[in-house]
Design a protein around this nucleic acid. Sequence first.
DNA 1: TCGCTGATCATCT
DNA 2: GATGATCAGCGAA
Length: 196
Amino acid sequence: MIDLARPVAQVAPRLLNAVLRNGDVAVRLTEVEAYDGGNDPASHAYRGLTQRNAIMFGPPGFLYVYFSYGVHWAANVVCGPDGQSAAVLLRAGEVIDGIELARSRRLSARKDRDLARGPGRLTQALGLTGEHRGADLFGDGPVSLTLATRPARGVAQGPRVGVSVAADRPWRFWLDGDPSVSPYRRSPRAPVPERS
DNA sequence: TCGCTGATCATCT
DNA sequence: GATGATCAGCGAA
């Protein structure tokens, strides 16, 4: 178990192997990404409190959901103490329960490993949408998070996917070799990284 | 397998 | 009025 109020770069890798459930479908997290609120130009909370990101400024343990590219939903676990706006984007996982329901929601998935392989796919497999914004992950609702009791083994880390700024903070964490981890795609808007 | 592109709209400037 | 924490489908290799 880990205290979600701790620094987000420490919390994020500890969410690997945690289980996110919504009703009958459950996913074991295999890939996450940390966003450090006001200290992080890539964070939705970097420019301060807005209607969309308000939930991030509250206490940890709640779900921040946003609509991406006019097409997909993406889910985050709010982290950091109350008043700070850190969050961890849930990028991918393996469906471990309710797989038939997950398949029915993800008809384009060729293989089961693709059911929740990516942020938009993960929310679709779980049936998470804007109505779940602000859900208490440790309350009585259908959405819940079960933290792993011990740190995951085989954790890799590297630059973040899809962001055009601060992409090279190594805050994407994944279980190395797990087939449900999404392919790395650098944002076409991100500057070319330093090479040695 | 890789790279490109259209879809589509809430949110913020 | 522009943008984006993405995905699926397509054609090329």
